[in-house]
Design a protein around this nucleic acid. Structure first.
Lengths: 212, 212, 212, 212
DNA sequence: AATGAATGAGCATTCATTCAT
DNA sequence: GATGAATGAATGCTCATTCAT
């Protein structure tokens, strides 16, 4: 892979990610991508097998960056780490709004060629959260009856929704304000075990795992 | 509006909602909609101004049903009502999976003709949740620093995400199992005020409103 | 099938047959076909599944006409009938030169989608000739050792080649002059049995059939 | 012309002849030719002016070999030589089936750049046959009224057709079986003069020449 | 009220050719 | 001599929309 080719692929990535997240996969044309990247249309096909493959490569690229970003936020005790990871997710979306819209819009499509790819890719990011929840579960800090897999996806989706609403409706609001609400909600969930014995239904104190 | 015409519109609705949620708005053709509805292509245009208008009508129809479904679940004290509303959302998505995918996929698109419509429509459903949160806030049952608007969108998005993951990855799992996790997470949040005074940062005890 | 649609298909046929036979299948564009037929490009696709299908339908249409033309020439004793059928083939090609070029050019392609169609279609025309040869064989008028299937294809190909050379190199020459040569060649073949016993190699006097 | 370059051209020839005869000129891409030849795409253009020129060179190369093959079969009295030449044509096609298909498919195209080249090239091969027919005509062994030029093209086309049908439909059949039928047909034609005086139309005993 | 044939702008994709290395 | 990245005109095909019936 020559350096020139690599540079071209990078330009195409950046052009495609913006356009697709703004107009969606279907409404973005290869002409637009090529023009924005400053190359000829044929160059798109010289570098990627097709529009769909460019899209898949793009998703992978984006989720890798997101996962990396989340992993970098993990430090210290799991409780604090979780709050930080969610802040990192919020921050990432603030910076890469275009990609987040793309992820939201295309993840829930069925019957698509790239369906499998999207699911697998998404789980990379959620994996960081569920890893922390596993640790908290091991320390008995999760409420009884909580399924770690479900909870991880719940937190991921919650933050994604909040973040996009933030960017869409109140883009000028500082991140911290938004994060406070998220943090409060999560704290409540985590501290639930402090009160276990009060009302929690009996002895099933161990969190449940997502069945396979 | 004749009964015959109304029946035709209904057939078109049902055909469109399934197809669009499976393949997306862009990838669904008017031909497919007409064929699935068992009418000629021209009939679509006799009954709707165009594909986009059919889509808008469809969203409205679906969100009205969702909001209605959620409102019907509101009863008793707000705390219990909130749990029930979220269960209702979960159940609605279980039954109208196609519509939920559609809502998720198209809500986050910018620069679309129906962007305004989608936002307005979506707020109908979220409104039911934020209504309950307002009541809880008035009773002092929400953690300090919690923004009701953000929290409502967070809960709505959380349940939507969980529900679609459930339908996609573990469709045979009973609703109750999934709901348990959601309920535990929300309970923690609500009970947070039981512990207020412990660690809450300072005097800002009243929940904040989402600024307009 | 409405009358209007049928008329459109006919216009497309006539446009396509001329263009394809002049420039070949690959070099003829759908734009050209539509323009020559005086319809919009989309109309081609409304009436045929695609370019290849239009081509297949075209071949079938042409070979049906050719076979019909050849059958119409069959009358009287088989010996005379054969001469007349070959004259009819020559005449048909004189009139439908474009189609004949098409048949020649595309019959011998392997690995094509329409390969099977072409073979089957071509055998319709050859069938008329082999039918006559069967009759002649039954009357003992064919030379020993002659395979009827091979001979029919030989005569068909011989006349096709001669006819196209005629149209290409000496288009002003009258048909009769060309037919004379063909007729002389065939007469020789048929009269071979007059001399059987002279030099024919042994007892295998019955013509052979093409093995399956 | 360096040895290396000559080797590259040879590789390109072999790759092109197979691909073009299998898929046709139009459907064969320069990429495919380069890949099959094991060289880079640019190398094709370094060695040939373009795709069309490669094709012309290819045809010439093939027809030269065919003509050479036919000439080598000429020996002894013209009557026997003719049978042998036709056997040689059959054998050549059995061995170079790909090239024969190519010749058949492209000879009959009008309006092509290489039209003139193809005709001229083809006449080399037919020339061997018409040469023998001229000799036979001089010895009075051809039927009256036979045009030598037409007859040569007829025999060439007849054998080409038979040969390709043989390779396509009954590739396992031995060459001799196919050749027997061809030989019988030609024998009949040649011996026709043995019977002249019987029914041949009057005094026009001298074969005619193809007018120019 | 419904139909379906026709339309044509728009799109993804292909591919012969060029050229800097 | 050879390479392969880049090009862009050309092409098959799609599909929302129109309209005469």
């Amino acid at each position: 892979m020559s350096a020139r080719r690599e540079a071209t692929r990078q330009k195409l990535f950046e052009a495609a990610i913006t356009l697709i997240s703004e107009h969606g996969f279907g409404a973005t044309t290869v002409d637009q991508i090529a023009e924005r990247a400053g190359v000829a249309k044929g160059t798109v096909y010289y570098n990627f097998a097709g529009k769909a493959e460019l899209f898949t490569a793009l998703l992978e690229w984006g989720v890798d960056r997101l996962a990396e970003h989340l992993r970098a936020a993990v430090s210290g005790p799991p409780r604090a780490a979780l709050t930080e990871v969610l802040r990192a997710e919020l921050a990432f979306i603030g910076t890469h709004e275009a990609f987040a819209r793309l992820l939201m819009a295309e993840t829930w499509r069925t019957n698509q060629v790239w369906y499998a790819a999207v699911r697998q890719i998404r789980s990379k990011a959620i994996g960081v959260i569920s890893g922390l929840l596993e640790e908290l579960a091991a320390e008995g800090e999760l409420p009884a009856g909580l399924d770690v897999g479900v909870a991880a996806s719940a937190l991921f989706g919650m933050v994604l929704t909040v973040a996009l609403d933030w960017r869409t409706l109140q883009p000028d609001r500082p991140l911290e304000e938004v994060h406070t609400t998220v943090a409060r909600m999560v704290e409540g969930m985590l501290r639930a075990d402090d009160r276990s014995g009060e009302t929690n239904g009996g002895p099933s104190l161990t969190p449940r795992r997502t069945p396979r």
